Simulated assay, not measured.
Amino acid sequence: MHNITDYLNDIKIFRVLDKYNVSDIISHEKKVSRYALQIFDSLYPYYKFEYEERTLLYYSALLHDIGYFINKDNHKQHTKYIILKEPLLDNIPDVLRKILALIASSHGKSIDTSIDFYPLKEKTIILKLISILRIADALDHKHILHISLENVKLSNNSLNIEIKGESSNLILKKLKKRSSLFSKIYNIPICTNCF
C-alpha cells in the first residue's frame, strides 16, 4: 500500500476541511481523528500494523463527515463523492484515493460495496481501519456531548475504553451498536467504563 503522506499533508487536508466545513463539523472530525489514533496506538503493539495504515486512518477520520457540506442525510455517500472529486486531492494515486474514500464513507452502518473488489489481505486491513473509525466516531456521537476519552488499553483479551462526561450513557449505547465490526474483525470485545 502506498504511503498517503507522500501525496497529502496536514496543510492540504485542512484546506479541504475548511472548504467543506459546515456547522463547525471540523471540530468533530479533529476529535474523531484523535480518538481513532488513540485506539490504533493501543492496538499497535499487538497487531501487525504499518505506519501507512496509521496515516490512512488519520486522514480518513479527518474527512469522514465532509459530506455534511452537501447534505446531512446520506452524508457518507457525499463524503465519498467529495474525496473522489475534490481537485485538492488530485495528486493522490487513484487506488489510494479510492481506499481513503472507502474508509471515510464506511464509518456508519454499512460498508461501501467497492470493498469486494480488494484482495483479502487489503480488504482485511481496510476493515480493521473502518472498525476503528466507527468506534472513534461513536465516542463523539451527537458532536456536542463534551465526552472525553480518558484511556484506551488492550488487556484481558478485550479493548478497554474509559470515557468521562455527563452524557456517557448515550455514548455507551452508540458504542455498543458500532462495535460489532470491531469485535468481529479483531475477535475481541470492547469493554467500557464511565466516570
Rank of each mutant, 00 (worst) to 15 (best):
D18W: 08
A136Y: 01
Y59W: 07
I13E: 02
L154W: 04
L96K: 05
L129S: 14
H146S: 14
K128V: 00
F49N: 03
S114H: 06
T5L: 13
L17G: 12
H146Y: 06
D137L: 02
Y46A: 00
L8R: 07
N169R: 11
Y51A: 14
S167F: 13
I125K: 15
I147M: 11
N193T: 11
H2E: 15
I39N: 09
R134N: 06
L57W: 01
H2V: 05
L127Y: 12
S114N: 14
I39H: 06
K76W: 06
L37M: 14
I126P: 08
I188C: 07
L89D: 13
K128Q: 13
I135G: 14
I111K: 03
F182S: 05
I83F: 11
I188G: 11
Y46I: 00
N160Y: 13
Y20V: 05
T192M: 01
E29C: 15
I161Q: 04
D140G: 10
N21G: 07
K98R: 15
S167N: 14
L172K: 15
Y20P: 08
V22K: 14
D24L: 10
H28W: 02
L145C: 10
F117P: 02
T192L: 07
I11F: 09
H2R: 13
S180V: 03
L159H: 08
S179P: 04
D24K: 15
K177D: 09
K19C: 01
D140Q: 09
K128Y: 00
P119F: 09
Y51I: 12
I185T: 14
E86S: 03
G108E: 08
K128F: 05
Y44M: 05
K184V: 05
L43V: 10
T192I: 09
R54N: 05
H64M: 08
K173R: 14
K98W: 02
P87E: 14
H78T: 05
S106N: 04
T113E: 13
A104G: 04
H141Y: 12
N74Q: 10
L129F: 12
I4A: 08
L37H: 00
H64A: 08
L154R: 09
K30S: 08
I163R: 06
I144P: 04
I111M: 00
I171N: 01
P87R: 12
L181K: 12
F49D: 01
L154Q: 10
K174P: 01
K174V: 04
N160W: 06
L159I: 09
L56P: 08
Y51V: 10
K72N: 14
Y118N: 06
A36T: 11
L139P: 04
K31T: 14
K177N: 15
Y35C: 05
G67P: 12
H107Q: 13
A101C: 00
D112C: 04
T55P: 03
L100Y: 08
N9L: 10
S110Q: 10
K48W: 09
D10G: 12
F182I: 09
T124K: 15
S148P: 02
L43Q: 09
K30T: 07
S167E: 12
N91A: 05
K177E: 15
A104L: 03
V32Y: 07
L149C: 03
Y46P: 10
K176P: 02
I82T: 03
I92V: 01
V22P: 03
N157C: 05
Y59V: 01
I188A: 12
Y7G: 07
S60K: 12
L149H: 00
L154A: 01
I39L: 10
L172E: 15
S106P: 05
Y7M: 04
N169W: 13
I92C: 01
